[in-house]
Amino acid sequence: MKLIHTIDKYKWGYIFVAPWIVLFCIFGLYPIWLSIKLTFLKYNLLEPSKVRFVGLNNWFNGIRDGMFWLSLRNIVYNQVIFIALTFFISLGVAICLYRIVRFSSFFRTAYFMPVITSIVVVMIVLGYISGPEGPLQTWLLKIGVLKHGIYWKIMPPLVMPVLAVINSWKWFGIQAVIFLGGISAIPTSYYEAAELDGATTRQMFWRITFPLLRPQVFFILVMNVIYGLQMFTEVYVNFDLYGGVHHAGLTPVLYIYAIGLDKFRMGYASTLGILLGIIILFLTILEFKFIKRRVD
């Protein structure tokens, strides 16, 4: 009786969350179940009748797949540069924004424009600017800084750093606003006290500002690892399905896309997807363990 009463009293609550629960079951839980099932199968999307149970073969192949690990190395190379570069740019911008009063919102508005521009457009525009026929290199050639054009898209060591710089341009606005929020929340009395004790500006930054920004740093790192390691569009629009020359532009998700949508090997693609998911989850847990603890 009591249960029926509770359900009746709160029935609208359950009805209102029902859409999310239903959609989550269909497009969240079921795909995960299907994904696990697929890892044990050799399943070609175009020939579903030829499905075959292969045990753990997909897993063994995945762990030994040199291309997959190469793609992972590429994306880590990219993310290390991207995270470090964006961190310094956005922290610098946040400090500058904090110090000024007039035009602050004007600068913020402008700095956010790359964030709202699509990756496809950003890659066309910045790809042109950075390319050998683009304005930047043409100018550098003219003043003699460069001897010849740099075709970075076909020069393996340059591919990931250039993409990282382009992505820093695109995303630093978000991080700057997050840092600005953190800096603004620090009570000015901390600095006044430090000043009385004769602290220098530099000391104040490293002893007060930086440690108190840990929640922001943590949040940004977690987001970067989850989303950054899944980079796809940036490389897809610039290279072929296998990442161009020496696979320098191959990222894990691009590789999974190629296996699934080019070769139609859904079982194997699914296994690599879970493998990448496990790696990302593992890194996220590490971040929680080592950084979050210090935040608290």
């Binding site: 999307l45 899944q230 699934g260």
Partner: peptide, 19 residues
């Protein structure tokens, strides 16, 4: 669920919607 990387869903969801 926000912490679950989206890459996990991409192949099975495509397989499902294709079917």
């Amino acid at each position: 669920t926000m912490m679950i990387p989206g890459v996990l869903f991409f192949i099975p969801t495509y397989t499902m919607l294709y079917r």
